[in-house]
Simulated scan of single mutants.
Amino acid sequence: MEIITKPRTREASRWKLKALVHNWQLYILLLLPMTYFLTFKYVPMLGVIIAFKDYNIFKGVLGSPWVGLGTFREIFQMQGFYQALRNTFMLNLLDLIVSFPIPIILAILLNELRVQWFKKGAQMILYLPHFISWVIIGGIAIQLLATNSGIVNGVLKTMNIEAIPFLTKPVYWVFTYLGIGIWQSAGWGTIIYLAALTGINKELYEAAEVDGANRARKIWHITLPGIKPTIIILLIINIGHMASIGFDRPFVLSNPLVTDVSEVISTYVYKIGIQSARYTIATAIGLFQAVVGLVFLLSADYISRKVNDQGIW
């Protein structure tokens, strides 16, 4: 049986050209983000070849000799790398368990509020910390939580309560790290879920009220299923970031007394790559981190599609 394909007609080409001319403003606007991503995201990817070279800043990338996978073998023999990798996974996993549900809970609570002025005020207070620099947050944390000079411990001492080493003992530091992270980021995540809540059909709530459902039932059977796709997408993205961690937060909250738990991949790369000028090692660690993150992302998406038939793509 012969399959006859429809040839591309001149009218179709003319129609596409007409559409391009008619929407030329949109295509011009699209060039700006495309130029940004090409210049600052894709072109720098060529620098990963440094991971396979004995990079010399004077010889340049192309002039430096190849070493193949020798750099990666050296990395896997470094004790500090395993400690940083362990801490990265530990802090990200705790963040995922503790911090991820908070924006969902806050969004549901705000959605249930009926007093609009209080709702708007609460939203502003919640997402305002997102716009504060981590350098400033680190200074605030030291002023409030320092063992000897912090305001919190000063109040505890006046109440004859022993000072709590929030920033100087590893266990307390981890809880402080998580708590400050929740305070800084929960409001921004809440906005995302509030936007998802606006897409739920209000008639579903009205029908549930007619059937006698209370507020908890409506949240469980309507609200949560309504934002389920958003929850899954953000969960997959967070799992994809398990091998990577921001530099600012652990760097500004860390100190020499808690490096056993605060030394993560990003701060380790900073010390190796910038302070020690070992650019080959730093690039190789970054490449390893990106590959592991991609594996986590694809695995989480695959499992989500198998279990819930929903994924990021």
Rank of each mutant, 00 (worst) to 15 (best):
residue 72 F to E: 04
residue 78 M to G: 12
residue 255 N to G: 04
residue 98 V to L: 01
residue 80 G to A: 11
residue 267 T to Y: 00
residue 16 K to S: 15
residue 31 L to R: 10
residue 311 G to T: 05
residue 138 G to W: 07
residue 32 L to M: 12
residue 138 G to Q: 06
residue 187 G to S: 13
residue 173 W to N: 07
residue 199 G to I: 05
residue 5 T to W: 15
residue 33 P to A: 08
residue 128 L to D: 07
residue 197 L to W: 04
residue 53 K to Q: 12
residue 233 I to V: 15
residue 87 N to P: 01
residue 153 N to C: 01
residue 179 G to K: 03
residue 293 G to M: 12
residue 156 L to R: 03
residue 92 N to D: 07
residue 83 Q to P: 15
residue 89 F to K: 00
residue 155 V to R: 09
residue 30 L to E: 14
residue 192 I to L: 09
residue 170 P to R: 02
residue 148 N to E: 12
residue 23 N to S: 14
residue 298 L to P: 12
residue 219 I to F: 11
residue 308 N to G: 05
residue 247 F to R: 01
residue 167 L to I: 04
residue 135 V to L: 08
residue 7 P to L: 06
residue 111 N to R: 00
residue 184 Q to R: 14
residue 100 F to W: 03
residue 304 S to T: 05
residue 238 N to I: 06
residue 200 I to C: 03
residue 122 A to L: 10
residue 83 Q to W: 11
residue 128 L to H: 00
residue 120 K to F: 09
residue 120 K to T: 15
residue 295 V to D: 07
residue 116 Q to F: 10
residue 36 Y to V: 02
residue 162 E to I: 11
residue 143 Q to P: 10
residue 91 L to V: 03
residue 94 L to K: 14
residue 190 T to A: 10
residue 74 E to Q: 14
residue 79 Q to L: 14
residue 138 G to K: 06
residue 240 G to D: 00
residue 35 T to A: 08
residue 289 Q to D: 02
residue 296 F to C: 06
residue 227 I to G: 01
residue 173 W to M: 07
residue 71 T to W: 08
residue 299 S to K: 00
residue 21 V to D: 10
residue 187 G to Y: 09
residue 37 F to D: 08
residue 112 E to Q: 03
residue 94 L to R: 07
residue 187 G to K: 14
residue 61 V to T: 01
residue 188 W to A: 00
residue 293 G to K: 05
residue 67 V to D: 03
residue 134 W to D: 02
residue 7 P to F: 01
residue 62 L to V: 04
residue 201 N to Q: 07
residue 311 G to N: 03
residue 53 K to T: 03
residue 304 S to G: 10
residue 288 F to L: 15
residue 234 L to K: 07
residue 57 I to R: 07
residue 229 P to I: 03
residue 127 Y to F: 11
residue 127 Y to W: 08
residue 41 K to W: 11
residue 181 G to Q: 02
residue 308 N to E: 10
residue 167 L to Y: 10
residue 145 L to W: 07
residue 250 P to W: 08
residue 204 L to F: 10
residue 241 H to Y: 06
residue 260 D to S: 04
residue 127 Y to I: 07
residue 3 I to K: 11
residue 118 F to G: 14
residue 88 T to G: 05
residue 163 A to P: 09
residue 138 G to R: 11
residue 130 H to R: 11
residue 76 F to C: 07
residue 191 I to N: 13
residue 33 P to R: 13
residue 115 V to R: 09
residue 216 A to W: 05
residue 17 L to G: 12
